[in-house]
């Protein structure tokens, strides 16, 4: 009988011995020293923070569950969710306009992103809060100076909360437009052609074929924006919004526990961002549908020094 190497299942293979690989790894002194140094720095940092008497841990613990702090936390959550929703809606609209065949729609969309990405958010927030100085009344009815069906005073309509929503949401929409546009453009044009060949309308193509695939590209940066928004809401403190940071500041103006209250706020921000990161992870998984082959490959690319590649 002839021996055929690499042909398992033959009787020849049955006679071959098992050859387990039990190799010894080469020493990695550089990695061990780096790990040791990093570990030491971490322990030292933790120690100096825990034993530090200037940090008033008892105050921090007491205020974590304070009613006013929790109220501010709730406003922060509402502001984040609502302004991201507004931003996402405006972003999809602006992105679809940007990719449309009409030069007027493209121009309007470009103007929107140009203006709101070009001016500081702080300025926009203060502007919306003071919009009554420019437009004292708002109405629904005949445009230009025609008769109006409903009319409101700007001062009644614009509270710190609505001004914050307008400022954060409209500003966010300008950034989301770019993210959504990149997502839509990432979809192979052949997908649109295949869908059109089935007789789908433009709306059906967008909803059934293009957007679901664009989501894979849209979700990660949107999660990033959401996490960033959780903390950007703190800018609302300039127009006296009652969110987490503003509330914490109000408290330390009374009890002078400046550092302690900032740490209370920061702990809550970190709790929120952690929850959001977990949510982002699951959302990304959902839109991986049909791309099973991808994550493992990408994970390997992200870990050039990792064990899996060694």
């Amino acid at each position: 009988m002839t021996k055929t190497p690499g042909a398992p299942g033959t009787s020849a293979a049955a006679q071959e011995p098992d050859l387990p690989i039990d190799a010894i790894r080469p020493p990695r002194p550089g990695r061990w020293i780096a790990a040791l140094v990093a570990g030491f720095v971490l322990v030292w940092l933790a120690y100096t923070i825990i034993v530090n008497e200037n940090l008033h841990w008892d105050v921090i613990v007491a205020y974590l569950g304070d009613g006013r702090v929790l109220g501010g936390l709730w406003v922060t959550i509402q502001l984040t969710v609502l302004s991201m929703a507004i931003g996402l809606a405006l972003g999809v609209l602006a992105a679809v306009m940007q990719l449309s065949g009409s030069a007027v729609l493209r121009g309007a969309s470009a103007l929107y992103t140009w203006f709101f990405r070009g001016t500081p958010l702080l300025v926009q927030l203060i502007f919306w809060f003071n919009i009554g100085l420019v437009f004292p009344t708002f109405g629904i009815g005949v445009p230009f100076d025609g008769p109006k069906l409903f009319q409101w005073q700007a001062n009644e309509l614009i509270t710190p909360f609505t001004a914050a929503l307008l400022g954060l949401g409209i500003n966010e929409g300008a950034y989301m437009a770019e993210i959504v546009r990149a997502g839509i453009r990432s979809v192979d044009p052949g997908q649109r052609e295949a869908a059109e060949s089935l007789g789908m309308s433009h709306r059906q193509v967008l909803r059934r074929v293009v957007l679901p695939q664009a989501m894979r590209v849209i979700v990660p940066p949107t999660g990033n924006q959401f996490i960033s928004m959780l903390k950007t809401t703190s800018m609302v403190s300039v127009i006296a919004g009652a969110e987490l940071l503003t509330v914490s500041q109000r408290i330390y103006l009374g009890n002078f526990e400046v550092i302690a209250m900032l740490i209370v706020a920061s702990i809550w921000y970190m709790v929120l961002t952690t929850i959001a990161s977990v949510g982002q992870h699951f959302l990304e998984k959902r839109f991986e549908r049909g791309h099973h082959a991808l994550p493992a490959r990408i994970r390997r690319n992200l870990r050039p020094f990792g064990r899996g590649n060694a």
Binding site: G190, Q191, E193
Partner: peptide, 10 residues
């Protein structure tokens, strides 16, 4: 099509 263009998410 030459490159199939199946919908990858279905």
């Amino acid at each position: 099509f030459q490159r199939f263009h199946l919908f990858p998410h279905r």
